[in-house]
Write a protein that binds this DNA or RNA. Structure first.
Lengths: 190, 190
DNA sequence: GACGATGAGACAGTTTTTGTCTTAATGTCT
DNA sequence: AGACATTAAGACAAAAACTGTCTCATCGTC
């Protein structure tokens, strides 16, 4: 039993609570009860209460997300293929994310804020940590940061507001979509 | 615009709120906002706050339920047929009731209490009011009250905890189920 | 038996909710 | 126009819920 079992159990319970009651209506007591842990323990493990818990949950979801994403992109040895794979997999994961769908349905404001404003810097930071090693064979550190930042923003935007002409969940469409950008990148390097 | 439009609009909003947040988490303000009415008006129309509102909503749902049920049983001119029709229609309505399903999922305790303890007397009272005229051609007033009471309890019980051998949503099964009881009733009258 | 971690719950301070009331605005009727 | 009823908005105090911290008894581990 690793030391993280208690924390992750609490985060599981918090996730269920957020789904059931929404971030606004949940109390620390709700989460304590749902996780079978006393309020004292909860504060000891997550000092700061609901906000810290919510934040910790997002970090966990985010790292899980990018764990799966990088696994998905393992073994691809062409830059364009890699970008396509990443975008498509990320888009499909987002679309398949039940938790995200529930939260978007019950608290669109909070979730949109997390996806596009408040939480975006963190998302970009985590994405950069995870994806930089994958793209470094093809790009400089600066280029990698810029490209990853851009890909995160585009993937989220097209997830939230799908285009009529582009489907980033489809490899062919995604490839077609990114080719001009990659060409421009190659050109800028000359 | 009848005078009941305001009330029923508020009840609609309350219903949505109860579904979204549960009886426990909703505040009067939530319902006031959802119904586009000021809190003052809400208290004027439903003095007593959340409990009174919840109660009024149940009364409305209940009368709607029995309105549909009696319509369903119109024109049946045999006692056994009538009972079968009522039981089957009631069971099917209960199973098809989305609001009930949502509430049972999110707040089983509260809903079960309403179905089996707190709210049962009211349900039986309303059922008696609606169904007595239908069964009076075949039964005395006392018999009618007893039979209706029994049918309500059985229908709710079999809805909440379906039997392996009896399906009150199926006319054949329901008829088979009630026949002994009706025979006993006929015997007792002799 | 000492140790650290935990559950239960007391506690005060804060925030939220409640229920009432007043005021100004709105629409209706004569 | 003027009297009338109804309402939204929001001030207000009282009640309730929530928060964050603390203490203490208990439990399992070493």
């Amino acid at each position: 039993m690793g030391t993280n079992t208690a924390e992750s159990g609490i985060l599981d319970a918090a996730k269920r609570c957020f789904e059931q009651w929404g971030v606004a209506k949940v109390t620390i007591d709700d989460i304590a009860n749902a996780s079978g842990v006393s309020r004292a323990t909860l504060y000891r493990l997550f000092p700061g209460g609901k906000e810290v818990l919510f934040s910790a949950l997002q970090v966990r979801e985010l790292t899980d997300f990018f764990d799966r994403l990088t696994a998905e992109a393992a073994g691809v040895d062409d830059f364009e293929d890699l970008v396509v794979r990443l975008i498509v997999a990320a888009t499909r994961e987002l679309r398949a994310d039940e938790h995200l769908a529930i939260m978007l349905g019950s608290e669109p404001g909070e979730v949109l804020s997390q996806l596009t404003v408040e939480g975006l810097p963190r998302t970009i930071r985590v994405a950069t940590q995870y994806l930089t090693p994958l793209v470094r064979p093809y790009l400089s550190a600066n280029e990698a940061a810029t490209v990853i930042d851009l890909l995160v923003r585009l993937t989220i935007s097209y997830f939230l507001a799908p285009s009529d002409t582009i489907d980033l969940g489809d490899p062919i469409s995604a490839r077609q979509f990114i080719q001009p950008g990659l060409a421009a990148l190659a050109f800028a390097r000359t």
